[in-house]
Design a protein around this nucleic acid. Structure first.
Lengths: 335, 335
DNA sequence: GACAGCTACTTCAGCGTTGTCAATGACGAG
DNA sequence: CTCGTCATTGACAACGCTGAAGTAGCTGTC
């Protein structure tokens, strides 16, 4: 019951193994008639390419490494799922690499443990120009989200416009004292494109961010830090009628803290997240959030990767996608 | 800048490539001194094994396929994460295959699209003896959870005892009219080991399941079906003071339905889940659940797989793990 | 002192595929 | 009718690694 090889197909199609190989790779070298015969033979013997052989001979492994910091945060799990399925549609298998720290993320991008992949899509938690050491990897790597480094093809989400939109949404519904629950940043203050969107939207209403209302959890953007940060904010005695969280998971943590503190959402305080993860739809109350247009992001990432795999040269590209508000009950009109 | 091969290492260590290979594979054929020299040479040239070459030559690819129905359900995402990390600890890379339907799950187990993996760990949604066609695959496959088929090494969680424990917990805290929110089953009625645990625990208190209190969502065990099912139960006008859900995701959906219906948790109704996923800790109120002892399950699965990869023969084994109650506020004592 | 039985290696062929380049045949031009 | 050209296809040698089957050199044995 040996697995059929190119040679078996060749015997049936009455051509050389090399011709079978050419047909399979879609090379326009064989005549129509030969191609036809080869495909029939492939079906007849039930041939499937041996990736190891192909990889050894230099034809590529057909394998893509998807790199995420973890899978327990829905944001990463859901993106990994979308990417894996989209890659599978193109006939590419996925090696999923969990890189929980900067060193392993860097290593995964450059290829130590993912050396057998033809390309990489990294959902970065750490990547930046410094981490990359200013060097571009020697195979196609697409960065999925976060800030472009100028070194990698990058898909960026509509962070500024999205966060601006949700900020305006709160302002438009009468909220004025807006708190921010962020992840830990190097500077100790909220930063990044989302923060810019926030500041811009406030400015349109003649407002400025209030440092007393900006809090961050410990080192990771996740539910527990959101809970901690909000608990701290409540304890500070600060007054606010709206809370914008850097993402949905943080918002879920913050929501629990608000409820534990006896604060009603949305009656006393409006709450919002970002990312449009599945969990946001099933919180109580359902969470207003921002959709980064996942489909468009995944499409762009896979398309760019495939183009590079196909030999496309040129400087790193940046694909920008939009973002739109998903209003739900957590930001309902206050009484 | 060619990637170093066995031959490069061999040249430095002044031995044959084959000896280097033997040392790398841990074969006790070389002398201590030679082994030492080889390892130094490996470090010196920065050698990393070429998996394609090894796989072609028959030495195995060092790659394991982890098969899950999806990654958007936290149960699967969290298990995938644990499995991938545990496999990585053993030097095994993971191909993550998302198999959303029975056909692709079967195909992934038998090896069509995962042919290049040395072994498989499948978190099944469909696998059963019939689906497998009564045949065992020709490479190590470990089934992670669900019912043993007698064809695969299987890790089973403490479903019956776990569900029994949570049932007793509700009974012990005075709940008597217990509803069940299940996933869709072939029979249209709750079944399986968890259900057995439920029935047993009820019997200890001289009670029987009430068909009017058993509901199921549509075709998938997930938040929305939990919501639907609970909405239906509320609409039926049935009275109950406790709800046991087949898993945490269903419970999250049910929780939202309860809240939407103005039912207070836990004051009016106690609510419980199963699986101890991360989301259960951050619902409002936090969800009482059952921990299937993830660590033990993952350890057992990886250990069995590695043993099989190491050539261990013998009939399919079943490793049973325990389960313990994690009481939280959602099942707090009623007023 | 010839030889079996070790230990410590090496040699060799081949895994399935592909790139390179050569070979074949058909066909039109001269 | 011969020759060059183009369109097809084939032969061959890798790619990096490992299993099987060697070959030395040494020890101990009768």
């Amino acid at each position: 019951m040996r697995r059929p090889t190119l040679e078996d197909v060749a015997a049936v199609a009455r051509v050389s193994p090399k011709t079978v190989s050419n047909v399979l790779r879609g090379r326009p070298l064989a005549s129509k008639a030969t191609q036809e015969r080869v495909w029939q033979a492939v079906a007849a013997v039930g041939y499937r390419v041996n990736r190891a052989g192909r990889a050894l001979a230099g034809g590529g492994s057909g394998r893509i490494a998807v790199v995420v910091p973890n899978l327990h945060q829905p944001y990463y799990a859901e993106n990994a799922e979308r990417l894996i399925l989209a890659l599978a549609d193109r006939g590419l298998t996925t090696t999923l690499r969990i890189a929980p720290d900067a060193a392993s993320e860097r290593e995964a991008v450059f290829g130590g443990t993912t050396a057998d992949a033809d390309g990489v899509i990294v959902c970065p938690h750490f990547v930046n120009a410094e981490l990359l050491g200013g060097k571009a990897p020697d195979r196609p790597v697409v960065q999925f989200g976060s800030l472009p480094t100028g070194l990698l093809d990058t898909v960026v989400m509509g962070e500024r416009e999205g966060f601006g939109a949700v900020t305006r949404h709160l302002l438009d519904t009468g909220r004025r004292r807006l708190a921010l629950v962020w992840n830990a940043t190097a500077s100790g203050r909220p930063d990044g494109r989302r923060f810019e969107g926030f500041v811009e939207a406030l400015a349109e209403h003649g407002l400025e961010p209030d440092p007393a209302l900006m809090v961050a959890g410990s080192d990771w953007d996740w539910r527990a830090p959101g809970f901690e940060a909000m608990t701290g904010l409540l304890a500070s005695g600060a007054e606010f009628d709206g809370v914008l969280c850097i993402n949905d998971s943080v918002a879920v943590g913050a929501l629990r803290a608000l409820r534990a503190g006896g604060v009603r959402v949305p009656d006393d305080v409006a709450l919002t997240g970002f990312d449009d993860t599945d969990e946001a739809e099933f919180t109580v109350p359902p969470l207003t959030t921002v959709s980064p247009e996942h489909e468009a992001m995944v499409d762009a990432a896979v398309r760019m990767l495939v183009e590079r795999l196909g030999g496309e040269a040129g400087p790193p590209r940046v694909h920008r996608t939009g973002a739109h508000l998903i209003p739900r009950a957590s930001s309902g009109v206050p009484r």
